[in-house]
């Protein structure tokens, strides 16, 4: 069996880079004495995979990781033991026991929800929003391994609303294409003609193609 774990990465923990987070989670699993599995070979490593890395500075309210287990375990017992080894702000929120054959979370991932709380400029952004979304395409420069290339943000924005003092976005996040929330903010600010404000971004959900959370396969 394998265990899917939903966890948070809030507050100061948003500054931990992905590699550092991987290491921190592996060590927590080891401290907790959970029945983890290791790769073969001379330098075995603990088998653990993450649905999607989070950029440094962005909070995660319901992030997802998965690991194969060496023996069966109750979800609640797993959760309790793991949490005893995790610091505040990096707690596990749910554990789901899954069949080994369930496709990996990473492969099921299609989209993510974000909230963006800009420190200022909310009014201007609200006014710009309808026009921004009405554009047929929103070109931007995407930086990748292969250098800078032109890409279109519009088809990657599934939904974008402003209410309660925050922007709420549903963005594509899959191997076929992803939009970054900071890029969305940059493009929207550019369209609204305002400088980019400081903005706390939180990823609130990771969704599959049915737009259901990954922990409900």
């Amino acid at each position: 069996m394998k265990m899917l774990v939903v966890y948070e990465k809030m507050g100061p923990h948003r500054f931990i880079g992905h590699l550092d987070l991987q290491r921190a989670m592996q060590r927590a699993l080891r401290r907790a004495g959970l029945p983890v599995r290791y790769s073969q070979g001379f330098n075995p490593h603990l088998l653990l995979s993450f649905a999607a890395p989070l950029s440094v500075g962005v909070q995660g309210a319901r992030e997802v990781m998965e690991l194969p287990l060496a023996r069966e375990m109750e979800e609640q017992a797993f959760l309790d033991r793991l949490n005893a080894a995790l610091p505040e702000g990096l707690k596990a929120l749910a554990a789901r026991a899954l069949e080994e054959e369930t496709p990996p979370a990473m492969a099921r991932l299609q989209a993510a929800r974000y909230t963006l709380k800009p420190e200022e400029g909310l009014e201007a952004l609200g006014q710009a929003l309808p026009g921004f979304l009405a554009q047929a395409s929103i070109p931007f420069e995407k930086r990748g391994k292969a250098g800078v290339r032109q890409a279109d943000l519009r088809p990657l924005i599934h939904d974008l609303q402003l209410h309660g003092g925050a922007l709420h976005a549903l963005l594509a996040l899959s191997e076929q294409g992803s939009a970054r929330p900071d890029q969305l903010l940059a493009s929207l600010c550019e369209y609204a003609g305002i400088p980019r404000p400081r903005c706390l971004i939180t990823r609130t959900a990771l969704l599959d193609k049915r737009l259901l959370p990954l922990e409900q396969p």
Binding site: P12, H13, F15, G17, A24, R27, G57, L86, P87, R198
Partner: peptide
């Protein structure tokens, strides 16, 4: 907090580590 968003490796300065 605002400063931490602009520096390299902000986790150096946040504390709150396990133990």
């Amino acid at each position: 907090e605002a400063l931490l968003e602009t520096v390299q490796r902000p986790a150096r300065y946040t504390g709150g580590e396990v133990n």
